[in-house]
Design a protein around this nucleic acid. Structure first.
Lengths: 153, 153
DNA sequence: TATTGTTATACTCTATAACTATA
DNA sequence: TATAGTTATAGAGTATAACAATA
């Protein structure tokens, strides 16, 4: 992307792949009765409990969106809202044991589905490795939001 | 995924990255006033015009969902519905010149946003390359749906 | 006054069920 | 009868605007 001559074209193809794979993620999550936004909340909370406002920023959604998604997760016992004694406006969101189990079930369902898709390739490991390599983006996204957060102060 | 000992853990991280990157794709598409489902339709039609039913299968959504999304794209002049003379029940969906332009604008917006995110890494090229490598999944998904289509006959 | 979170409201995408037109 | 596509309807996630409680 920084050098279109070498990677520009395949980066676009990579973006197409992200768009398509996401739909498969949604289908896999459906088998464990989770939506993609719910999964995003659960996996973000797995990295540590956070105030609702922090979650909104990390997920790049509005505050009302967090309220709506978390409402459903609280109803199902996957997330708990806890009052912050220092600042009574804030609510800390915490993943419950049931939420952790749901997250593991979601991982299994997604990996199984992706395995079935990759099985159609001559060398499925190429696809699996490509997916694993995508993990570097988690660091990039973490820093991206961290920088945003700092800029806001 | 086929071998959890070597890649299982990072594949899960890769899936988390897909879920998070998708949100960035949505935000980037928003700057060119496209939604992710609209982008999926446009990029699928870029590979060739198709009947609405074929599109539904390739996108892994229901027929009414295709109708709804395509309605919006037709209104904006990005897609045209054309009657099939051989079977008057079928409608062939075709990308217009305006649709092609919109797709290129979408690519640019997404690549720019991803560049900004990757810039936070010590070696941004690692992330860019990882994204490009994801293109192999396009082949896997094509074959996956092809096999499904064949099984249905 | 500013901030945190919720409520009210509207739009898009999603699905299932029912319908029309065609095969 | 079966298939292609649309319409009707409902649920989930998204956003903006307005509000309550707290700082």
């Amino acid at each position: 992307m920084s050098d279109p001559k070498s990677t520009g074209s395949s980066s676009s193809d990579g973006l197409r792949a992200v768009a398509r794979l996401t739909r498969q993620v949604e289908k896999a999550l459906g088998t464990v009765e989770l939506t993609l936004p719910q999964f995003r909340v659960l996996s973000t909370l797995e990295d540590g409990s956070n105030a609702s406002s922090v979650l909104a920023q990390r997920l790049a959604v509005s505050a009302p969106s967090v309220t709506a998604v978390v409402d459903g997760l609280v109803t199902r016992g996957y997330v708990e809202r806890e009052a912050d004694p220092d600042d009574r406006r804030r609510l800390t969101l915490r993943l419950t044991r049931a939420g952790e189990s749901a997250l593991r079930a979601a991982d299994t369902a997604m990996l199984e589905r992706f395995d079935r898709v990759a099985a159609h390739l001559d060398d499925p490991a190429t696809a699996t490795d490509a997916l694993g390599a995508l993990a570097v983006w988690n660091t990039a996204l973490d820093r991206f939001f961290e920088a945003r957060s700092a800029a806001k102060q």
